[in-house]
Write a protein that binds this DNA or RNA. Structure first.
Lengths: 132, 132
DNA sequence: CCGCATCCTTGTGGATACTG
DNA sequence: CAGTATCCACAAGGATGCGG
């Protein structure tokens, strides 16, 4: 697995506390389950309608879907194109900014795919320890 | 900035829906603000006491700190070592698993550092559009 | 010093029903 | 089809006080 040392790169960034706060807030906004899933989906099929997203994003409620998409649009991660036809047609697609985030998330997905068994094991071990 | 194509790697993973659900759940667990911050902090200073973490992790409440650390311990991301002394002394440090996640998060941090201004701009533009 | 227990407030998110 | 609006349950999360 190819893992370059992004860590070093990160270490070298000047740390202005005010910017840190902004960045942390941004992380809080963007690092949530639905946002990550939607970005994944929109990376795989470049252009999606509301209903497609709704079906692809298993378990999400209409409300959360709308809400998350709005937030992403606001943050410039996706564009929302409305066609003035009946029945209505709305298309979502990632912006370059969103695509960048998608790439950044790849590492996390790969990590999760690679280690979910280890984590299940760790949990089992933890439970076992509690009982003893 | 060095960004290898992790995307391709990710694409090639076989997608068993059952595993996908596990992975998504894992993402939901791990992709939260406090977890990410604590991992950052524990990457920078390898070994931390409770109080240190409390101070380093600005804004976190005692409760959330304990809760998050427990969850991380349960998932095998950190170890918790208790010294039987008075006053009590407890040390936390990342496991190899936790360190791997730390690396995976680097990309997201870098992205956030690099683009927080763009996002602020996107938000401003969005607000402006709403008023018009 | 580390952390659990309790109370209480706020917000998150699901279900349902209704519109252009 | 693509939402908005409303209601409601539950859980997240802060504040405080106590205990090993």
């Amino acid at each position: 697995m190819t893992t370059p040392d992004l860590r070093q790169e990160l270490q070298q960034i000047q740390t202005d506390p005010r910017i840190d706060r902004l960045v942390e807030e941004l992380i809080g906004r963007v690092a949530d389950k639905w946002t990550m899933l939607l970005i994944e989906i929109l990376t795989e099929n470049e252009c999606c309608r509301f209903g497609e997203l709704s079906r692809a994003c298993t378990g999400i409620s209409q409300k959360m879907l709308t809400q998350t998409l709005r937030a992403m649009e606001r943050d410039g991660l996706v564009t929302r194109k409305v066609y003035p036809v009946v029945p209505p047609k709305v298309e979502y697609r990632l912006t370059d900014l969103g695509l960048g985030l998608s790439k950044a998330f790849c590492g996390v997905w790969l990590w999760a795919e690679a280690h979910h068994e280890e984590i299940a094991a760790a949990r089992a071990a933890y439970e076992a320890r509690q009982e003893g």
